[in-house]
Every structure is written in C-alpha cells, then in structure tokens.
Simulated assay, not measured.
Amino acid sequence: MAGDRILVLGGTGPAGIVLLRELLFRGHATVAYVRSPDKVPADLASNKLLEIIPGQLGDSTPLESAVSQSRMIISLLGPQLNDAPNPSPLPGFYSDVLFPLMKKHRVKRIIATCTVSVVDKDDSFLFGRWLLARGIQLFFRGSWDFDQRVAGVFAQLDLNIGDGGKGKEGEIEWTLVRLCGIPGGASEEEWKADREAGKGVYVGPVVSGKDKWFMTLKRGRLARWLVDVVEEEEKAGRAMESLVGKMPAVSEI
C-alpha cells in the first residue's frame, strides 16, 4: 500500500533543495532520499515535515523504506554536463530498481526530468534548440546518452492512458519533464524571489511563438510548478491526463 509522502530523489542539488523548500513551505510531508545528508540545509533538515533517509541508489533496504512511505515520486536525478559517466547507471536504476519497488508498494506516480536534447514527436525544429542538443551530443556525450536512455526507459513502461489517465492496477503513471537552462540559487531568499519570476510556465512541445517555449526556467519557478501539479492531482484524486505518459518541455513563457 502506498504511503502519504512525496519522495524527492536528487534533493541535494540546487534544484532539489529548492523543491524541498517549496514542498515544506506548502505543508507537504516529504521524504528526501540522499547520498549526503549534510548537504541538506539546516533550516530544512530541522523541519518536522521532512524525513531524510541516507543511502546510495543501489542500497535497496533504505530505498525501499523511502518508496514505501510515498504516494508520489519527484526525481531530479541527472548528471552534470562535465562529469556524466558514459554509460550512466541511472537509466538502469529506474528500470531495474525504482520501478519494481514502486510496483511492489503500489506507488503509481512519478515525475522525472531530462533535457530538451530528447526530441518529442510534437516538437518543431528550432535552430537554437538543435544547436544546443548537438553541442551536448558532441562535447558532453555522457549527458546526452543519459537523456536518450532515460527517455527510452520511461517510454517503454507498460502504460495504458486510454481510460482517462488512470492506467491499470499496478502500472506506473509517469511524466518526463524536459528542461533547458534552470538558473537560480538554492538559498531561501533566492527561492522566494525566483518562485515569483516571469509571467508563467509553459508546458508542451518545443515550439516557437508568443507565450510558447523559451530556453530557461528559474529553479524556484520550476519547483512551484511541480508542487502545483502535486496539489492539483491530490485535489482531483488522480494524475493529470495531460501529463501522464508525456514528455513535456517546461519553460518560462
């Protein structure tokens, strides 16, 4: 049986810390599964809504404890451009470790991230995006390989979204968010400022035009959007049909 917490993976990077701030600010009981607990800021670590579980991705016992307490997983796992191993072990972590644990404990919902170097069928050709993706492929091959393999792992999930996004019993309702630049700091002051930045958030294919895809999204604004999704789905009692089984590009408007 699924738990009642939000599990955050990748919670000690800048984007992960900002996500923890947003979740706790809005009163969500949260679990952070982290390799280095000391990297969680003290003001967050002391919050009673947050449980920190230390462990490596391959440590099945503590990871299972984290998954079993959760009703939804948000994963910001991903390599830095300059240190990504090739091949990355993370795609295998999803397919061979995390997804089986989710099915075992009936945790159906996961939102994970990659970059816009992954191309979706509804994307338009934009030279700037192509140039960026090509640069990553040529000069940061490990990161490019990670994104392509992660997209493949999620796309291969046995998911039926034909019944209004609910899926079948035991299936995983996934969303793979494609990001580009996510500037912004992780301090409380920077998060508070960045969460209010911009006119709004674009969610959809990579297309050009007014109020369409842009190349950046402040980390604070990303965190706010992610928790908006959490709360909308919680209120509706189901995953959002427009996001389930999709790979939306998310950016500032």
Rank of each mutant, 00 (worst) to 15 (best):
A15Y: 04
I110S: 02
V97G: 11
S36F: 05
H28A: 00
L57M: 06
L24S: 03
F125V: 11
L131N: 15
F93P: 05
L131H: 14
I136C: 10
D59C: 01
L98T: 02
S70Q: 00
E64V: 03
F127A: 13
V119N: 07
L101D: 06
M72F: 02
A29Y: 08
I17D: 02
L90M: 13
Y94I: 00
L44P: 03
Q69A: 03
E51L: 09
P85L: 03
T113I: 14
R129T: 13
N47P: 12
Y33I: 09
L131Y: 13
I17V: 08
A29R: 12
R129Q: 14
S68C: 01
P79C: 08
M102S: 04
R129G: 10
I111H: 10
L131T: 12
F93N: 05
L98N: 01
N47D: 14
A15D: 06
G135P: 12
V34Y: 02
R109H: 10
K103V: 14
K48S: 12
L20E: 00
V119Q: 09
L131F: 15
V107T: 03
A84Q: 15
I52Q: 10
P91V: 01
P14M: 11
S65V: 15
F99S: 06
K121A: 14
G55Q: 05
S124C: 09
K48V: 11
P100W: 07
F99K: 07
P89E: 04
K103E: 13
I53Q: 04
M72Y: 02
L24Y: 02
F25G: 15
Q69C: 01
V40D: 00
R26M: 03
I53S: 02
L98W: 01
D120H: 08
W130Y: 09
D43C: 09
S95G: 07
P100G: 08
T115S: 13
S46A: 14
F125A: 09
L19Q: 04
V8L: 09
C114A: 14
F25C: 15
N47H: 14
I17H: 04
L9I: 00
N86S: 13
K104Y: 05
L77T: 05
A29Q: 13
H105P: 08
Q80P: 11
G128S: 12
P54T: 04
L126H: 01
C114E: 06
K108T: 14
G27T: 05
N86T: 08
P62Y: 07
S124R: 07
D59S: 03
N82V: 15
S65F: 14
P85K: 03
